[in-house]
Amino acid sequence: MTEQRMTEQRDDTVLPFAVEALDMRGRIARLGPALDTILTRHAYPAPVARLLGEACALCVLLGTTLKEEGRFQLQTRTDGVVDLLVVDFDAPDRLRAFARFNAQKLAALEAGDREHLLGHGHLAFTVEQGGDNARYQGLAPVEAGSLQQAALSYFTQSEQIPSFVRLAVGQVVTPQGTQWRAGGLLAQFLPHSPERQRMADFPPGDAPEGHAAPEFVEDDAWTEARLLAATVEDHELLDPNLTGADLAWRLFNERGVKVFATRAVREACRCSDARVEDMLRNFTQAERDDMVHDGKITVTCEFCSTKRVYDPEDFKV
């Protein structure tokens, strides 16, 4: 490992790493103040905060693959108590997020019921790389209320890359008080030979009776890499005193792990006075008239909760 292990910033970073002996690449996300700002600003109930924290960790694990420009968005739409999660990552480092939930249904939910908290639906990843690059969207089913499983389904079905994902969210006590934190680990098997990367086929729905599917044998390198990654503990992903490089070393040092420069993450919304004013001008006069309450037009950003108040006369043609 490099000297970065001794000096790495602990909070609000994503650390890329590689274990070349096992043909594995991965990323470790550690979110602290940025996530705490997002969650406490909206005063989300703890179950909703944990779910949105997982979504933020997953988003930055994937979004930081973008370089200096572009946008990565994670969005869920489900039939659960939390029916909408939206997380935006604007390269190189800006993160924002919000959740929509039914407070009455949440109050009636049994403690620990994640299946009905998130529910069933779909997870969408949207990538906009800027310039002339095409917009890309990938979808995966959300089942049993698990973002981890939805992400694995996406990599398995859409990308066909053997992958491991672990997400953790919790509150820790710091000298400044209680703080929300999140961590994530993504490990992927990326050998040079596509044949080594193959995965088990899905069960054939129309196979004749008595048909024996060929036995699938997972590549030994990926088996070892996955088992090593699975030893990660939630408290390690959340520990404010443990760097991502230290965690990578703990998990993979026996096989030789190489870490790269961390990517910083910060909480920042893209809303601005100019953007909101342009949006209002794009509405028809009738639509703006419907927005008037007590003689003013009030616009509150769903992400950062910034409230802006306008005089309707300023937008009349």
Score class of each variant (00 low, 15 high):
169 V>E: 15
169 V>D: 14
169 V>L: 06
169 V>T: 14
169 V>R: 10
170 G>N: 10
170 G>L: 03
170 G>S: 11
170 G>D: 12
170 G>F: 07
171 Q>A: 07
171 Q>W: 09
171 Q>P: 03
172 V>P: 01
173 V>N: 05
173 V>F: 04
173 V>H: 00
173 V>M: 06
173 V>K: 08
174 T>N: 01
174 T>L: 10
174 T>S: 05
174 T>W: 00
174 T>E: 12
174 T>D: 07
175 P>M: 06
175 P>Y: 04
175 P>W: 00
176 Q>F: 08
177 G>F: 09
177 G>K: 08
177 G>A: 09
177 G>W: 12
178 T>C: 01
178 T>N: 01
179 Q>P: 01
179 Q>N: 03
179 Q>S: 13
179 Q>K: 02
179 Q>H: 04
180 W>G: 02
180 W>D: 03
180 W>I: 09
180 W>T: 01
181 R>M: 10
181 R>G: 07
181 R>T: 04
181 R>S: 09
181 R>F: 00
182 A>H: 10
182 A>N: 06
182 A>P: 03
182 A>M: 00
183 G>V: 06
183 G>Y: 03
183 G>M: 10
183 G>K: 11
184 G>P: 01
184 G>Y: 03
184 G>F: 08
185 L>Q: 11
185 L>H: 01
186 L>W: 15
186 L>P: 04
186 L>H: 10
186 L>E: 11
186 L>D: 13
187 A>G: 11
187 A>Q: 01
187 A>M: 02
188 Q>I: 06
188 Q>M: 11
188 Q>D: 13
188 Q>C: 14
189 F>Q: 07
190 L>D: 08
191 P>H: 06
192 H>K: 15
192 H>M: 11
193 S>H: 04
193 S>R: 14
193 S>D: 14
194 P>D: 07
194 P>K: 02
194 P>L: 00
195 E>R: 15
195 E>F: 09
195 E>H: 14
195 E>A: 15
196 R>V: 02
196 R>K: 10
197 Q>W: 02
197 Q>I: 05
198 R>P: 05
199 M>V: 01
199 M>L: 11
199 M>H: 04
200 A>R: 12
200 A>Y: 02
200 A>V: 09
201 D>L: 12
202 F>L: 11
202 F>W: 04
202 F>S: 12
203 P>K: 09
203 P>S: 06
203 P>Y: 15
203 P>M: 00
203 P>L: 12
203 P>G: 07
204 P>N: 11
204 P>Q: 03
204 P>S: 07
204 P>T: 03
204 P>I: 02
204 P>D: 10
204 P>E: 09
204 P>G: 01
205 G>K: 14
205 G>N: 04
206 D>L: 07
207 A>L: 13
208 P>N: 05
208 P>E: 02
208 P>L: 05
209 E>G: 05
209 E>V: 12
209 E>I: 09
210 G>L: 07
210 G>I: 11
210 G>S: 10
210 G>H: 05
210 G>Y: 04
211 H>Y: 13
